[in-house]
Design a protein around this nucleic acid. Structure first.
Lengths: 136, 136
DNA sequence: TATAGTGTACCATCTGACTAGCACACTTTG
DNA sequence: CAAAGTGTGCTAGTCAGATGGTACACTATA
């Protein structure tokens, strides 16, 4: 497993860690019964506090993704549906799109904005706040 | 202009606001000389503290995106390059990709993870921390 | 039955994001 | 000149993320 965390994105580290684990499960990189890194070892390698790892693991347990076994470790729970194939296919689609846009000359910042904008346009159900203003 | 902020994403509101403004400029929705909403009015409509809007505006000014005129308002500065056409083209590409993946049955959460994973795979230059662990 | 390795549970502390409220200075408009 | 609307500046406080450290409880293994 390889986890990549972005310190300066504003997104809490424990949330990023959770996302990484979920993604690994979705792609099949982590399978049912696999043991996750130890809290202490992961904290050490990611140069973060063990408590932060604990928080991520506990939330993942609460979401039913992992199982914490006192004294032995953290393990991937049986996932309801194996979406590995679908996710990998999706990854391919996104990959080609990102590659194409990179060649067009978009910066990573622009890419993120375009993507986030598209998501929020396509699915306005979430916790959004709208503002319709004119020229004040 | 329409701004959409996500309260529960973990990303600071002032950063989200900045992104929205930048995106609006990139797409051409906001043009040179256009006046942005008043600090107070924007804060009121977005139901946030004026200080938070101030912070976003000041950072945007620092980045050269807007110009704050004491006593009159905030205005879009002349942008170095008009990337409107490029960005709109990119938006079309991303739009079709997102649509396709939505039809495949991906949730918004999965979509975000796949995208973020792709970005970090494609451009590992940033402030990333790697972990290569095995089964501990 | 030891012992090492694991998760669990606290507590104190620091930092940044955000809120809350007020007074002040400048510009526009009448 | 006066009033309304604007950005500016400041102080104080709340909250969540993250750190740092310690002690404890459980499990696997020799």
């Amino acid at each position: 497993m390889i986890f990549r965390l972005n310190q300066s994105s504003g997104v809490p580290l424990y949330l990023q860690l959770m996302e990484q684990v979920k993604h690994a499960v979705e792609t099949g990189a982590l399978r049912e019964g696999d043991q996750l890194p130890t809290i202490r070892s992961l904290a050490e390698e990611l140069v973060m506090n063990p408590n932060t790892v604990v928080r991520a693991y506990r939330e993942l347990e609460h979401e039913g993704v992992v199982e914490l076994r006192h004294g032995s470790g953290a393990f991937i729970k049986e996932s309801a549906a194996d979406r590995g194939r679908l996710i990998r296919r999706a990854q391919a689609v996104v990959h080609s799109a990102v590659e194409r846009l990179t060649l067009l000359g978009l910066t990573e910042e622009e890419l993120r904005r375009v993507f986030e904008n598209e998501i929020s346009q396509a699915r306005p159900e979430g916790q959004w706040r709208k503002l319709s203003g004119g020229k004040p």
